[in-house]
Each structure stands twice: as structure tokens, then as C-alpha cells.
Amino acid sequence: MARASGGRKLLRWFLLLCAGAIVLVLLVVLMFRFVNPPTSAFMVGYQLQGTNKSIAHEWVPMREISHWMPLAVVASEDQRFPHHVGVDFEAVRQALSEYRAGDGLRGASTITQQTAKNLFLWSGRSFIRKAIEAGLALIIDGLWSKQRVLEVYLNIAEFGPGIYGVEAASWTYFGKPARHLTEYQAALLAAVLPNPKVLSVNAPSSYVLERVAWIRGQIAQLGAGYLRDL
């Protein structure tokens, strides 16, 4: 009897701990709807890799970012961004179907999921991390506006080793603020996002240039007003 009672107490404490963790996550995500995150998990991780590693990062509000930049990342990475709930379940279904058919498991991460990963999590391809990422993305989509998701993403995304956020990237690569980015420059920045430690803005490979051309074509198809009603 005493053993059963002890087991129930442990279970109760475990459930309370889980509930507390969920409440804490909700409060932190809700806070970042109004307060700009001063850093991100990826920035901290980069700095912890070595004592001399510094980062370039400067937060700018969405109104000070060229309208081409959110269009470029949506065209490149998540064209159903205005319509899904943080996780694109149709893209996930297609990726799993292709995997079962023998193809490689391709990513189906939305911009919201990438925001959750960069802000709170770690890099890697484990199913545990992907599950946490998806849960956080659903919470973020429920508590933030779509425009806020884009604003945070563009301010914490890595555009090169130690270069975080579109403002730092724009000054580093083009010598001007993000509000003056052209369509081509926005597409070039978006083109390196899948692997900014390997793909280069300064010395774009033929693969990067092909992506730039494809992204610009997708922008033209979506139209300049695609994100206007977010």
C-alpha cells in the first residue's frame, strides 16, 4: 500500500512539473509577442563554441525592413505561410509519403517552426527535437500574429557564421540598412538560409545563383501584395 501511495505521489509531482513547464513556455512565448528577444538559442550556441566568437546582430522592426525580404523568405521556404497554423500538415504528409516511397526524408519546416527552433532549441534532425519544434510552432501561431512571426524570424535568422538578423546581414554584405534591400539582394539572402554556414552571400555558388533566380520567379508568381493582409 505504501509503495502504491509513493508511486501516486511521484506521478502527481511529475504531472505538476509538466504542467508548470507548459505554463512557463506559454508565458515566455506570450512575452515575446510584445518584447523583442534579446538573443536566441542559436546565437548563444554559436558563442559557446569558442571564447573568441562574437556575433553581429541588431534588431529592427518590420517597418524598417524592405518589403522584398519577407516576400523572399516566404517564396523560398514557406509559400503557404499565410494559411497554415504554424505547422504545414499537408507538407508533412507529402514528405512522409515520399519517405515511405523510398525517397530521402526532406524537411517540411515552416517559417514558424524555424523561428521556434532558432529561438528556443538546438540544431539537429532528431524526431524528439522536431516534435518539440512543432509543438512550439503551434503555440507561437496561436499567440502571435503572422507579421510578428516574420519580424522575429528575420531578426534572428542566421545569414552567415556569426551574422544574425537581416539588419546585420544587410550591413555586412551590402553596406546599407535592411530597409534599402533590393529584390535581388533579398532573394540572395534568402537563398543561403537553408545552410548559411556553407552557402555564401559574398561568393555565391552556381547553386545559390540558381536559387536566387528561382526565388525571384516565385516572388513574381506570388505578387508584391501577397503578404499585405497579414
Score class of each variant (00 low, 15 high):
105 L>R: 09
7 G>R: 09
48 L>C: 04
158 E>T: 01
40 S>N: 03
31 M>D: 13
104 G>K: 14
197 K>P: 00
88 D>F: 06
140 I>E: 11
17 L>S: 12
145 S>Y: 12
130 K>I: 01
223 G>T: 02
67 H>K: 10
81 F>A: 04
205 S>E: 04
54 S>N: 14
203 A>H: 07
79 Q>S: 00
2 A>H: 05
195 N>V: 08
29 V>F: 01
73 V>A: 07
13 W>L: 14
8 R>A: 11
37 P>L: 13
159 F>S: 01
62 M>E: 14
77 E>T: 13
91 A>M: 06
139 I>T: 11
11 L>N: 07
177 P>Y: 15
170 S>G: 06
41 A>W: 00
168 A>Y: 07
144 W>Y: 15
7 G>F: 07
72 A>D: 03
6 G>A: 04
12 R>V: 10
104 G>V: 13
189 L>S: 00
203 A>P: 02
56 A>V: 09
134 A>L: 10
62 M>N: 11
49 Q>M: 12
151 E>A: 01
20 G>Q: 00
118 N>H: 12
104 G>H: 12
165 G>E: 05
59 W>M: 14
47 Q>C: 12
178 A>D: 03
165 G>F: 05
61 P>R: 01
5 S>Y: 02
175 G>E: 09
51 T>Q: 11
91 A>I: 06
194 P>I: 07
92 V>Y: 04
69 M>T: 10
67 H>C: 07
149 V>R: 00
229 D>H: 07
4 A>V: 05
188 L>I: 02
201 V>R: 07
162 G>T: 10
93 R>E: 15
188 L>T: 02
204 P>Y: 08
144 W>M: 15
155 N>V: 14
91 A>H: 05
14 F>N: 08
207 Y>W: 07
35 V>P: 00
111 I>Q: 04
83 H>E: 12
9 K>E: 09
155 N>K: 13
130 K>L: 06
45 G>P: 08
146 K>W: 00
159 F>I: 01
130 K>Q: 04
64 E>Q: 08
173 Y>H: 15
219 I>K: 15
89 F>L: 13
102 G>R: 08
69 M>G: 09
5 S>C: 06
146 K>I: 01
30 L>I: 11
89 F>K: 09
45 G>A: 15
216 R>D: 03
56 A>R: 10
73 V>M: 05
13 W>A: 13
23 V>C: 10
115 T>P: 08
153 Y>V: 08
108 A>E: 00
57 H>W: 15
143 L>N: 09
111 I>G: 02
222 L>T: 03
186 A>Q: 05
40 S>W: 01
76 S>V: 11
94 Q>R: 06
34 F>M: 12
223 G>H: 03
17 L>N: 03
